[in-house]
Design a protein around this nucleic acid. Sequence first.
DNA 1: TTGTATGCGTTATCAT
DNA 2: ATGATAACGCATACAA
Lengths: 333, 333
Amino acid sequence: MSPKEAAAPTISSVAALAGVSRATVSRAFSNPRVLRADTVTRVREAAAQLRYVPNPTAQALSTGRHGLLAMIVPDIANPFFPPLIGAAQGRAETAGLALLLGNTDEDPAREHTMVGRLAPQADGFVLAASRMSERQIRELAERRPVVLVNRDLAGLPRVLVDSADGVRAAVEHLAELGHTRIAYLAGPSRSWANAQRRKAVKRSAERAGIEAVMLPGQVSNYDAGMQAVPALLNTRATAAVAFDDVLAHGVLAGLVQHGLSVPDDLSIVGCDDVLKAQVYPPLTTVSSHAADAGAAAVDLLLQRLEDPDAPDRRVLLSTSLIIRATTAAAARS
Amino acid sequence: MSPKEAAAPTISSVAALAGVSRATVSRAFSNPRVLRADTVTRVREAAAQLRYVPNPTAQALSTGRHGLLAMIVPDIANPFFPPLIGAAQGRAETAGLALLLGNTDEDPAREHTMVGRLAPQADGFVLAASRMSERQIRELAERRPVVLVNRDLAGLPRVLVDSADGVRAAVEHLAELGHTRIAYLAGPSRSWANAQRRKAVKRSAERAGIEAVMLPGQVSNYDAGMQAVPALLNTRATAAVAFDDVLAHGVLAGLVQHGLSVPDDLSIVGCDDVLKAQVYPPLTTVSSHAADAGAAAVDLLLQRLEDPDAPDRRVLLSTSLIIRATTAAAARS
DNA sequence: TTGTATGCGTTATCAT
DNA sequence: ATGATAACGCATACAA
């Protein structure tokens, strides 16, 4: 039952069987157009007969292309990322590439050593919500094509789910409901999305003429949301927008623990729409489209791979407010 | 900004700088014990000075070891898998290996071509909840070390989260509560876990002297759970155990849509404990420990990698019933 | 259109 | 303890 290395057929065996040189076999696969059609088929038949498949490692050593893409995420347990990863893997697969996955647990140092470890084998990187310093990222980009997701660095191809619009709509929605004091419950401090959302809340609140108070950053998980409730209550805000749905979900739970009811006592808005209508009460949130982001990122990377000097593109994925059941008129406290 | 291939230093440059042969440089890294201590340090200093790092591709071509593990999952969007993947990646990382991730969308054919694509580059596979045929799996195991998660094939190393105990406890719990007719809502038909749970429900019900009716298989997602509700109601069962938590979660929602309340009208038990106490009402479920399974699988694979002829181990991860709030005394209908 | 020869960066065998 | 040198499997510049 131990794997026998079954002496995989090489280019030489195929060449022998087909009665051509090894170079011809190589060309029959990598550049068939330069060969006569019949030799191509002859070689291919021989190859099929032997179940020959080009050895990617040898190809890599010779060409420098490994057929591998690397994707780095800060927290695979956060429901935002699995769809992102799945879509990226699917896209890569379609292009004949495989996906290396790295999970950093929000640790910039770990991320840095990880990309260093992966760089010699990966043809390119998609850094999702990278926590590395700008300098580290640019250093990597010096070695390998890099595409960023939710990180906005000039000169690098990047896809950004632009929650500014959605968040603004959320704040306006809250203002219209009569809320005059809202809170923003922050997410990871190194998160670009968090910075963007925070800023959007602040600005939109100003514009709407209502007050916005900022609560300190949290790792994004259910428990953190629950534990943030006392601080939230302290602000005397009548509504809160949370960095993301999982935080919001925790807040929901914490609130009922405190005997408060949503949206009667407090309105809550999430972000990313990872919960859909699956919690009770269904969470008002800002859409995200993580899967689209993953696919777009790989597309950008693929593009970059064939033409390294293609102009860097900055693709923005728009968002919108999804009103469900956790927002209502402000309670008169 | 386009990546310059900066002519990475090779073993030759280091050899030149250190005034030794390439072989010595190689040994200084892969087998330092055979060299004099001072030459090792001299070589290492030269390497450090040039920022030399061995080229893994070249190593792979020469040794056959790629430093890559492949993990295949049927559905990365199912919350059971991300922790599994995260733990596996972490374990691999500790061992100096990187993780290739494949998502098959429950498609056996896709899985098969995927492992074929990956086999030449991966040192070994962990197949999580593989949907491939036994034959295909054994074929792969012929080429590469394979560890199975939640699939029970004799002769192959495997880690099984053994939900039999937990499910039995669940059924007994239900019986004690006075339920005399329960339903099992099945999951993916090719899932080993589903088969095991289904069987456990059946047997435990017999032993407890109550009736168990089996509902047909579903893909495991929230909507499928919701849509299964009419069929569930049709059985006139007063309790149901679902293949997993996400299905159970959908059932919960479907039930309230039908104006029914849990656990007053119907008791529900999930599996895997991926929801924790995060839904309302908190779901009674059977624990799983996906992360442990991922770590254990990689450990097994690592073991297999250094000694291909190690006896195949079958590690069982035990489960238990977690009683929360979706089970109660049978309603007298 | 096809073949020859060489290189890609290591490891490993065989000498010394 | 260290050095030469031949693989590893493929791609490609150059020849023919």
